[in-house]
Amino acid sequence: MISKKISPPNCDTCDNKDSIILCSMNKSELAEFSKTKSFNVYKKGQIIFYEGNQPHGLFCIKSGKVKVHKMGGEGDDQIVRFVKPGGLLGYRALLSNEPYKASATALENTLICYIPKNDFIEQIKKNGQLSMLTIQMLTNDLKAAEKRILNMAQKPVRERIAEALLLIKECYGLENDEQTIAAILTRREIGDVAGVTTETTIRTLSEFKAEKIIKLDGKKIKILNMSRLVKLANIID
């Protein structure tokens, strides 16, 4: 499953140090952490963990992107969230001592540090600041989950697809032209983010195209009118 194993980078000199909650630890704690963690490279499309498996450690993304997704009854996928460099994976299963509730797959070649379960839990018990940051992270997750279900219940399809495009743009960024989303996603994957069928996604994207909000170039999507797209998404917090 793991494609390549190389020496782990030092947490203290990590590029994402400012965005990773684990880096709230002091230098000596970080040095201890660096000793026990491992570091793996996942190829695009490679599964990092499967829904239903038991967690044994925490994944911390150094570079690359990951999707967290749940399987539906008939093998359909629902993308729960995207995780960028500096983000953590598997912490909820670890903290609640339950099997993973979703799977994680690398969307591109991704470098991930792996911290054994006991080291993470012990640090949370010892370090009050890390503990509070973890609670803050979970609170944000709860708000995101509530927002998502409200969107499903209350938002029309057009708003959900507009929001999905903004979410994908947020995760992948834009190409040099500052308009084209730097990702090649299928219509089905966009539908999986928005919670609509592939057919509805295709129809709605065509409407956006006709309204000159986006331009479609194969699987590439160029955002022509960002303010209109944001307004259409009707994002509330």
């Binding site: 609640s96 509730k101 609670i135 609170t139 997750d141």
Partner: peptide, 12 residues
């Protein structure tokens, strides 16, 4: 943290 994880799980 466990309570928050459980609440998130229920909603998801």
């Amino acid at each position: 943290m466990k309570i928050l994880c459980y609440n998130i799980y229920l909603i998801e």
